[in-house]
Design a protein around this nucleic acid. Structure first.
Length: 454
RNA sequence: GUGAGUGUAGCUCAGUUGGUUAGAGCGUCGGUUUGUGGCACCGAAGGUCGGGGGUUCAAAACCCCUCACUCACCCCA
């Protein structure tokens, strides 16, 4: 029989145990950070009813949605009535609308699950990937302080993850929208198109190309003067104070613009109050975000020197999360860490160490007759909270050590007839290459203590 | 969905202007005897050269088709 080449579908990430452990540690850190800032967990199903999921999305997102259908229904030519979620924000909107009478507001939830997008896989772009979201949803209103809390959380987590340098960049969409309104760009569609072009500025790396696209684009149709003015505004650099001063000096009366500047100023002040050093965040007026449900503050986070892999964390504020599900007005602000991409980038950068196994100790087998002693020893270690595995094969000791080493198990314990007679246990610390004999009763303590320094 | 590029061992790649049984490094497995891993040495397994067709005395190499993957576009974590 011909074997089928085993392979994962493109755009999925599958890991070996030691990598998986490293990935899990990363998720643990993110979870801890979220909980420390007072967010509570929820999960939602991987698939939603198609009409619910797609109630708001335009054509673009719908093209990327995977539909789900049982084969039975498929045989009957039924249109799939289930679809896999493509982000966690839409399910959140559904969740909050559905349970609004049982939730407390502001509702602060975190959610770490996989999402699915039917697009061509690419470097750092997956079709199945983890998003780790936090959002704060208010009823009717939501203080701007929360907009500053998002970067504070991200700063804490990314610092703890040890990902090296990173920069949280933020902007307020009202500034761009107001600026465009002041230029007489009245149609929301045209403004959205301009935003999308603007988002590519980073990738194109040449403002003149952006100008050309803005002028030449069917959907944008800016004049050369206006496009240049926009690019000049957007390329403002320097401290947050400098950028805000530059915004103040703009001869733009448009109230939306002014409100955006005021909001951005308040958020920047709050960021200082949160104590986030300005090396790790900056105002970047070119951050536009394609998704049009964002209405105010927007964020993108990049790892230093790894911009080409894209944003590893982004989000923003939206005035009304769930207008398609409820008449309640539910404003919110949220941010999402792309954990799969983040992990991939860290791997590429060599920043993710293939860590130790979750198994802490291997009880080796020297003499099959001593198996009862091995089992008792292992049970004792487990009782002391130490993850312990028993080598069930009486292979040569060297082989058993090799096994432990390859599996990333840091400690091996050896009990042979000699030890058994003397009432001691040999504890070998593989990574340190150090070996000690301790009385049987002190094994767990010795393992906890680890190899002696020096 | 559109465009471009690449397909030789598990991985990274060699393979002369087409010319015998297609190679290396790494990895894997085994060995170097008595209770000690990493290092070294020895050995082994592993390839219908992505698939199909064509040109030729002869194709991994040249041509056509096809498939897969990668990169880019769109969009986005």
């Amino acid at each position: 029989m011909a074997v089928i080449t085993p392979r994962t579908p493109p755009g999925t990430m599958e890991l070996l145990p030691r990598q998986q452990i490293a990935f899990q540690r990363m998720l643990d850190t993110i979870r801890r950070g979220y909980e420390r800032f007072g967010f509570v967990p929820i999960e939602t199903p991987a698939f939603e009813l198609a009409d619910v999921l797609l109630s708001k999305s335009g054509g673009e997102t719908e093209k990327q949605v995977y539909f789900v259908q049982s084969t039975g229904a498929l045989a009957n030519d039924k249109r799939p009535d289930l679809a896999l979620r493509f982000d966690l924000t839409v399910p959140l909107a559904r969740y909050v609308s559905e349970h609004q009478n049982d939730l407390v507001f502001p509702f602060r939830r975190y959610q770490m699950q996989r999402v699915y997008r039917g697009e061509r896989a690419q470097k750092g772009r997956y079709r199945e990937f983890y998003q780790c979201d936090i959002d704060v949803i208010g009823r009717d209103g939501l203080p701007l302080l929360y907009d500053a809390e998002m970067p504070a959380v991200i700063d804490t987590i990314f610092s703890e993850l040890g990902v090296g340098g990173f920069k949280i960049e933020l902007n307020n969409r009202k500034i761009l929208l107001g600026f465009l309104m002041s230029l007489g760009v009245d149609s929301p569609e045209r403004r959205a198109a301009v935003m999308r072009e603007l988002d590519k500025r980073d990738k194109l790396g040449d403002d003149e190309k952006v100008v050309a696209n803005l002028v030449g684009g069917d959907d944008t149709q800016l004049s050369v003067t206006d496009a240049r003015a926009l690019l000049t505004l957007v390329s403002a650099t320097g401290s947050s104070a400098a950028v805000l001063a530059l915004l103040d000096a703009q001869p733009v009366e448009e109230p939306t613009f002014r409100q955006g500047v005021a909001e951005l100023r308040e958020v920047a002040a709050a960021l200082h109050a949160f104590g986030i050093p300005e090396e790790r965040w900056r105002l970047n007026l070119a951050i536009a975000r394609g998704l049009d449900y964002y209405t105010g503050t927007v964020y993108e986070t990049f790892l230093d020197g790894r911009r080409e892999y894209g944003s590893v964390c982004s989000g923003g504020r939206y005035d009304d999360l769930a207008s398609q599900y409820t008449t309640s007005r539910l404003p919110g602000v949220g941010i999402s860490i792309g954990a799969t991409r983040l992990f991939y980038v860290l791997q590429q950068t060599g920043l993710v160490a293939e860590g130790a196994s979750t198994v802490e100790v291997l009880v080796t087998q020297l003499d099959a007759a001593l198996m009862p002693a091995y089992l008792a020893l292992a049970a004792e270690l487990r009782g002391a909270g130490i993850n312990t595995e028993i080598h069930a094969d009486a292979a040569k000791l060297g082989k058993q050590f090799k096994y432990a080493d390859k599996a990333g198990i840091g400690v091996a314990v050896v009990v042979g007839p000699d030890e058994q007679a003397a009432g001691v246990v040999t504890v070998k610390f593989l990574t340190a290459g150090q070996q000690v004999q301790v009385p049987r009763a002190e094994v767990a303590a010795a393992i906890r203590r680890g190899p002696t320094a020096g």
